[in-house]
């Protein structure tokens, strides 16, 4: 008997139909060929609203295969609501194995963090991006920002950083610090903390960015120059936790979350939940290293 396998599942593998997947795939190849350039794409409807991680989800579902091991984090945590729901969705639509372990995963989706452990050449990390346009804060019209990117005219961006320095004595960009990719495009790295920015530079991993609401995707290939915007005399700095330290492990050389207690007191804890677990269990970890972290280490953390 001929078995009907086509209609045994209600949904196509990885939810999105093949025609739309192919469109996203074609755009991804172009995005990789032009590092940092935002490519418009279809942003098909998903069972969650645009702006809740659909951009990341589109890319994940367009590249995922049956053999992939999937991990998803939200602000470093495997257990937050956004991560849990998207993980379950991807798992149900693909049957892929999911994991919390950063080293075991082959495909990682993330909201607003890069893992504390260094990612390898075999892994791909997909970012959920709320605002892909780094120039939006200095220019409100899309047709003008498009032209500014086309002409590599980033003067306004530098002026805004300068003004921030003059007003506040520091460049006040906390999350989503603008970066220059491959010496050509200024790119929003999605709202990752400054701590993570240097890890984009000359990395081993392919970084893919999806902004579902704004319908843009872009990419940073491995071994690509990614430099935070800075001035000769006013430099980019990462967060310094040398006066805090994780309250569970005492560890200082990681991005820490600040937790407020009911009595107004506060404490810090490692933001990357898998990294925290590994530190608690005294497992071996291989962290990113960069000159900014090394600098902090010079203070003997």
């Amino acid at each position: 008997m001929i078995e009907n396998t086509k209609y045994t599942n209600k949904y196509n593998f990885a939810f999105i139909d093949e025609a739309t997947k192919k469109e996203i795939r074609r755009k991804l190849l172009k995005a990789v060929a032009i590092p940092g350039h935002q490519v418009p794409y279809s942003s098909p409807e998903m069972p969650i609203s645009r702006g809740w991680g659909t951009g990341g989800l589109h890319i994940t579902l367009a590249v995922i295969g049956r053999e992939d091991v999937f991990k998803i984090i939200d602000q470093g945590s495997d257990a937050s609501v956004n991560a849990c729901n998207l993980r379950e969705f991807v798992n149900r639509m693909t049957g892929c194995k999911t994991t919390f372990d950063t080293t075991e995963a082959t495909l990682i989706q993330t909201r607003h963090r890069i893992t504390e452990e260094e990612l390898t050449e075999k892994q791909i990390i997909v970012f959920q991006v709320p605002l892909p346009e780094p120039l939006r804060m200095v220019e409100r019209y899309e047709y003008k920002t498009l032209q500014m990117h086309a002409e590599a005219d980033y003067a306004k961006m530098y002026v805004s950083l300068y003004e921030s320095y003059v007003r506040h004595g520091a460049i006040m960009e906390g999350a989503g610090y603008p970066v220059m990719v491959n010496g050509r495009y200024v790119m929003s790295p999605s709202p990752i903390p400054r701590w993570d920015i240097p890890n984009l530079n000359q990395a081993k991993t392919l970084f893919l960015f999806g902004a579902g609401r704004e319908k843009r995707l872009y990419a940073v290939p491995p071994y690509t120059d990614v430099e935070p915007l800075e001035f000769e005399d006013v430099n980019f700095e990462i967060e310094d936790f040398s006066n805090s330290g994780c309250y569970k492990t005492g560890y200082k050389k990681a991005f820490l979350d600040e937790i407020y207690a009911d009595d107004g007191g506060r404490k810090f804890v490692i933001s990357d939940s898998n990294f925290l677990d590994k530190k608690m269990e005294r497992q071996e970890t291989r962290q990113y290293s960069n000159k900014y972290i090394d600098q902090l280490q010079a203070y003997d953390l």
């Binding site: 990885a14 990789v32 590249v63 995922i64 050449e121 392919l206 290939p221």
Partner: peptide
């Protein structure tokens, strides 16, 4: 297989294009 072969081959193309 238009679903799984296409995905597998695309992943190789993506890897080649990014490296």
């Amino acid at each position: 297989n238009t679903v799984f072969d296409a995905q597998q081959h695309f992943r190789l193309l993506l890897d080649s294009m990014s490296r």
